[in-house]
Amino acid sequence: MACTAFAIIRLRNLFSVVILSGIFSLLAASLYVLLTAVDVAFTEASVGAGISTLLMLATLAITSEYEKKSERSTLLPKSIVIVTGAVLIYGTLDMPLYGAADAPANLHLIQRFIEESGKEIGIPNIVTSILASYRGYDTLGETVVIFTAAIGVLVLLGHGRNRWRPGKQPKIARDEQEEEV
């Protein structure tokens, strides 16, 4: 994953960057499966590797294929990223091991959910009662966010549909350009 990320940053050919970001999503999805978060992995594989790759390819058809070199100094952003990453890694040092039985999340909360949620909520499925009742406001907020995003995208697409039709770019010329490089 780290190797893919560095390649994404270094490469100037935007098409290979799109392809590599798809590979990155697939790697992340495999990681989620190994952590037994299968639903998250499905979302990552379909949205990250499927839909967003296509959306970025559609953007590439409108814009150019090569990234411009930027003249500005990258020292400040680099240092900010490195410091933030170091702080995040430092934060994981005293976390309990994955799946440890004495982790705080497994000690009190899970016990209570398993024993009490059937009585408190009245739904036999524990996961459903957590999502729909204990995390009700969270789920409501997520739904609002997704609804707002959908409205925004629809507004943008509806206005741009007739004016910005992606130009018919000759693909053969692009392939020849590839082979010259």
Binding site: A7, L11, F15, I19, I23, S30, A49, D175, E178, E179
Partner: peptide, 29 residues
Amino acid sequence: TLIRAILGPTIYDRILAVNLFGTKALLLI
């Protein structure tokens, strides 16, 4: 496959690489 996707001279190499990478990922799963 990852090396081929990074180095790959043509777009077809890269498309094939991402397809193969998905296949390898599901085999690994």
